[in-house]
């Protein structure tokens, strides 16, 4: 989950007494100088907690890109979408996950490309009211249910 709580009261982690060990009497631990906070997915993988949303992949349109039905997508709205990114867009009254193809911008259209030959790319002309909803920054694949 993002570091965001319901009702938005506190957004920071509770403070810890980091060097509480140091006030203990006796022999100092030789590891103290190498203390590190540890690895935290919320802190290290989610760059913009306020802009991060989650989605569940529904279907096989991206299966050849390694994104399959049931995977979890971490979507960051703060990141600028560039050519080749996996993005989430809202098209025909549903959210869709596709590659963003900007190679035809000069010809007046862009494409949302699936990664499965069963599906056609979605073409979007410059006149359409279209927005990239967010950029997929991670997908999480369950191996064991």
């Amino acid at each position: 989950m993002a570091k965001v709580k319901i009702l938005g009261k506190e957004f920071s982690h509770p403070k810890e007494l980091k060097f509480a060990d140091a006030i203990k009497a006796g022999f100092p631990s030789p590891a103290e100088d190498y203390r590190h906070d540890g690895l935290d997915f919320n802190r290290d993988l989610i760059r913009h907690p306020e802009a991060t949303f989650y989605g569940r992949v529904d279907g096989d349109s991206m299966v050849e890109a390694g994104i399959s039905d049931g995977d979890l997508a971490v979507i960051d709205r703060a990141v600028e979408a560039t050519h080749g990114d996996v993005i989430v867009a809202y098209v025909n009254e549903e959210f869709t996950i596709k590659f963003l193809d900007l190679s035809h911008q000069k010809e007046g259209y862009i494409e949302l490309r699936p990664a499965n030959p069963k599906y056609q790319p979605i073409r979007i002309s410059a006149d359409d009211d279209f927005e990239v909803w967010g950029v997929v920054v991670w997908t999480i694949k369950p191996w064991k249910r």
């Binding site: 949303f53 989650y54 989605g55 569940r56 529904d58 349109s61 989430v88 959210f95």
Partner: peptide, 13 residues
């Protein structure tokens, strides 16, 4: 509640 419940997160086609 797509931001607070896992069962409600958006579906991506």
């Amino acid at each position: 509640n797509p931001t607070t419940r896992w069962n409600d997160i958006i579906r991506l086609k």
